[in-house]
Simulated scan of single mutants.
Amino acid sequence: MSVQTLDALINDFIAMVETSTLIFEEKFGNRDIRRLWHTKAIKRRGRVTRGVKYELHGIGCRINLSTGTVDFDYGPNGEINGFDICRLYFFACERPSKYRKYCDKKIIEKEFAEYIDLKKSRKSP
Rank of each mutant, 00 (worst) to 15 (best):
G51A: 14
E18M: 09
K27G: 04
T69H: 05
T69I: 09
I33C: 04
N77G: 10
F28G: 02
N30F: 00
F24P: 03
E25F: 09
W37Q: 04
L36Y: 06
E18W: 01
R50V: 08
G51C: 10
L22S: 11
S66T: 11
V48H: 11
N64T: 10
R35C: 01
G68W: 01
T39Q: 09
I33P: 05
Y74C: 04
H38C: 04
F72Q: 08
L36E: 04
I42S: 11
F24M: 01
R31V: 06
F24W: 07
G46F: 11
V70W: 10
D71A: 15
R31K: 13
R44T: 08
R44I: 08
T19S: 07
R34V: 05
N77H: 12
L22F: 03
G51S: 15
I42G: 08
V52G: 07
L56P: 04
L22E: 13
K27C: 05
L65S: 06
T49N: 09
I63M: 03
Y54H: 13
E25L: 07
P76Q: 08
T69G: 03
T39V: 11
T39R: 03
I59K: 15
T21P: 01
P76Y: 05
I59M: 13
K53P: 00
R47S: 14
T49L: 10
W37F: 07
L56G: 07
L36T: 00
R50M: 05
V52S: 08
S20H: 01
E25K: 05
E18F: 11
Y54F: 15
R45L: 11
T21N: 08
C61V: 13
Y54L: 08
N64V: 13
G68K: 02
W37N: 08
N30S: 11
K40R: 12
L22Y: 02
T39G: 00
K53Y: 15
Y74D: 01
P76I: 13
I23G: 00
E18G: 12
S66E: 14
R34E: 01
G29S: 09
P76S: 13
I33R: 02
Y74N: 02
H38L: 10
R35H: 09
L22A: 12
F24Y: 10
R62M: 07
R34S: 06
N64I: 12
E26W: 00
R31Y: 04
R50W: 09
H38R: 13
T69S: 12
R45K: 15
I59W: 10
D71G: 09
Y74T: 05
D71Q: 15
L56R: 03
E26N: 12
E55F: 13
R34K: 14
T39D: 09
K27L: 00
S20I: 02
N64M: 11
V70D: 04
P76G: 10
G46M: 10
G51K: 12
I33L: 02
D73T: 12
V48R: 12
T19G: 07
R62W: 06
F72T: 04
L65V: 01
K53I: 09
R62A: 08
G58N: 14
